[in-house]
């Protein structure tokens, strides 16, 4: 059997794994720019290959 841990604490607040990650605005929008870039080139690549396959331009 596997028991839950006994751990050190300050004796006051009940320990909880609360959501503590901070939203990184700059990192998020940089990532979104990359995503938009990937999307743009994917659609462009699709159009290019589609035309190649069907011999249109």
């Amino acid at each position: 059997m596997y028991l839950n841990p006994i751990f050190r604490y300050d004796g006051k607040t009940t320990p909880q794994n609360t959501f503590a990650a901070q939203y990184n605005l700059l990192g998020t929008w940089l990532m979104r720019l990359i995503v938009l870039n990937v999307l743009f080139w994917s659609v462009a690549g699709y159009r290019f290959l589609f035309r190649k396959i069907w011999g249109r331009g």
Binding site: P5, I6, F7, R8, D10, G11, M31, V38, L39, S42
Partner: peptide, 30 residues
């Protein structure tokens, strides 16, 4: 690719707090 981009676009980036091992003068017994 389009679906994946849609999912990634909604996602977020975070700054994570540094790990801090348990400390204190008392024991928490669940």
């Amino acid at each position: 690719v389009v679906v994946s981009c849609f999912q990634h676009f909604q996602s977020r980036r975070y700054s994570f707090p540094e790990p801090k091992p348990f400390s204190g003068k008392y024991l928490y017994n669940p």
